[in-house]
């Protein structure tokens, strides 16, 4: 390596290291939006894709608000303020009939992806794992597991503490059964991902419709 080339290389790598403080990540898209939308909303005639990010809407202050509503700080590769969230607005003709949104979540074996199909009020119509490589994947992908989430909304999940895994007071989230007790961490990850998903949808799509039901940790009974 000649001296001039060495200097160029060092300068370039230095430039790279200086930008290391910046953060971003790739969002969570449906594998095949056309097929998935039709499966989750058979009555739909189309959908629109929207990209949003916490960074763009409210920056660090909004991130703190969302963390408070989730009950735990964001962490890891998939939880930064500038992660772009991919939101699908589902239509029938010109009428909005619901939403689909997925989030990445740290699981036992790498990341997992939890998608929710919601009506326009933010109530879960369908829950499913898109990506899950755990050996317990088969049990978690059984329709019976996803069915337990149907009809729930953020109002139910506010009482679920993602840190302790307990719901106080006991309610509908506590009745969700883990189909694979040996994969408790993936089960907990699924519940955390669902709550995170609902908080983000409430913030970006529902105009914080469920915020009135939120009580911070100290305010809960």
């Amino acid at each position: 390596m000649d001296i001039a080339t060495s200097r160029k290389t060092i300068a370039f790598l230095t430039l790279l290291s200086l930008t290391a403080a910046l953060y971003a990540a790739v969002g969570c898209d449906l594998n095949d939006p056309d097929r998935d939308v039709k499966r989750l909303f058979p009555e739909s005639t189309g959908f629109k894709t929207r990209y949003v990010s916490i960074d763009r809407k409210g920056g660090e202050a909004l991130l703190r608000e969302i963390e408070k509503r989730l009950g735990e700080p964001f962490q890891g590769l998939y939880e930064t303020a500038d992660v772009p969230y991919t939101m699908y607005e589902i239509t029938k003709g010109d009428v909005l009939i619901g939403y689909i949104h997925g989030v990445n979540q740290k699981g036992k074996y790498g990341g997992l992806q939890v998608f929710l199909a919601l009506d326009t009020q933010g109530t879960i119509r369908s829950f499913y794992f898109q990506k899950l490589t755990s050996k317990a994947a088969k049990a978690f992908r059984e329709p019976a597991f996803g069915k337990q989430f149907e009809g729930l909304s953020l109002e139910d999940f506010y009482a679920y503490d993602v840190v302790s895994g307990a719901e106080m007071p006991t309610g509908r989230v506590s009745r969700i059964l883990n189909p694979a007790p040996e994969a408790e961490s993936d089960f907990r990850a699924a519940l955390r991902a669902t709550k995170k998903n609902l908080v983000i949808v409430d913030e970006f799509l529902l105009g914080n419709r469920h915020l009135a039901h939120f009580k911070a940790k100290g305010e809960r009974p």
């Binding site: 390596m1 290389t9 790598l13 790279l16 930008t19 949003v52 763009r56 772009p84």
Partner: peptide
């Protein structure tokens, strides 16, 4: 703020060594 597009910026540095060339490679 809510958009229909995504734009990413990419930057990379690549350097190594080749035993056949007996010198640094990029």
């Amino acid at each position: 703020s809510a958009q229909s597009h995504l734009l990413y910026f990419e930057l990379q540095g690549v350097a190594g060594y080749s035993t056949a060339e007996k010198k640094a490679i990029y």
